[in-house]
Design a protein around this nucleic acid. Structure first.
Length: 287
DNA sequence: AGGGGGACCTGTGCGC
DNA sequence: TGCGCACAGGTCCCCC
């Protein structure tokens, strides 16, 4: 799945297709994804205009003029495709991304102007729900999320406080969406490499100079990945062929056995498993 | 209460 | 070529 940069890339791709358009019809082809669709899902969407498409952490939030917000999460393998004869293709726009098995087209939104937005998700870890706009603070998925990496709130002093006393490897702490919103397995590995911090180091021992390096490392890796249009791995197809090239810039993720990219380092990238998930790091320069 | 592990799914790629 | 296993971007839930 997509992590924050991929979700942001999807948001930017979907905006011209969705914002300002009414939903002519909505269709879900099964009763559930990860969770059941909410009551009267299609009915509540039909006729509503999408005023704005926002993002918080890895959630897409479509603000509707009905007073509700459509919350969408892509899980591990979710992808949106757009078919829109009426939208002139501009550099950076979405185009239909072929290759998805249509058996996993679970949701189809038909919008004004001949625009069709289809949600495809083979593993079905994604989900959609509706809530009253303004109720974000009591929404289980949104309440308690940590700051966005690009927000002023996310800086070394905050991070130091958030990691303090945590008896867990720093890698696990950075995956905790309550500490910082939007990081996933790839960008945590990349940020720790940039900050020269071992993923095995206890979070409680990351403070001072290390948080001074870690907060900007998180911020810049996410910013650069967004700038590159996210990364395109297996299940994540951004859409536009010009997008999604950040994976070519991974310093450690998926590079087991290859040389460390730090010029001053003679080490090589190792893979280990933490909490059942792969971690890639350089044991020479990450301490 | 915090932390670890399993569960939820399907698809792909690799070794035998 | 075929089969079985390991692994994949997330996160919820249960148990310790």
């Amino acid at each position: 799945m997509p992590e924050l940069p991929e979700v942001e890339t999807v948001r930017r791709g979907l905006r011209p297709a969705m914002e300002g358009r009414r939903i002519v019809s909505a269709l879900h082809r099964r009763p559930d994804l990860r969770f059941p669709f909410p009551e009267r899902f299609a009915e509540r969407l039909t006729g509503a205009r999408i005023d704005r498409l926002d993002r918080r952490a890895k959630y897409l939030l479509a603000r509707l003029d009905s007073g509700e917000t459509l919350l969408m999460h892509l899980g591990m393998s979710g992808r949106f495709t757009v078919e829109a004869e009426s939208i002139a293709q501009q550099p950076g726009d979405f185009v239909y991304a072929p290759g998805a098995n249509p058996a996993h087209d679970h949701v189809v939104f038909t919008l004004e102007g001949g625009v069709t937005v289809t949600y495809n998700d083979p593993r079905r870890f994604g989900f959609m729900t509706l809530f009253a706009t303004g109720e974000e603070a009591t929404q289980p998925f949104l309440a308690g999320l940590g700051p966005e990496p690009d927000s002023n709130a996310f800086e070394a002093v905050y991070l130091s406080g958030a990691l303090k006393g945590r008896r867990t490897p720093v890698k696990a702490a950075l995956l905790d969406q309550k500490i910082v919103a939007g990081l996933g397995n790839i960008y945590v590995c990349e940020a720790l490499w940039r900050a020269r911090i071992s993923p095995r180091r206890l979070a409680s021992s990351v403070a001072g100079a290390r948080t001074e390096r870690l907060a900007p490392a998180v911020r810049t890796v996410i910013a650069e990945a967004i700038e590159a249009g996210g990364s395109t791995l297996r299940d994540f197809a951004g859409a536009d062929g010009a997008l999604g090239y950040f994976q070519h810039r991974f310093d450690v993720y998926g590079r087991e056995g290859e040389p460390c990219r730090r010029e001053t380092c003679a080490g090589s990238v190792q893979r280990l498993v933490q909490s059942g998930r792969s971690t890639f790091f350089c044991p020479e320069c990450q301490r």
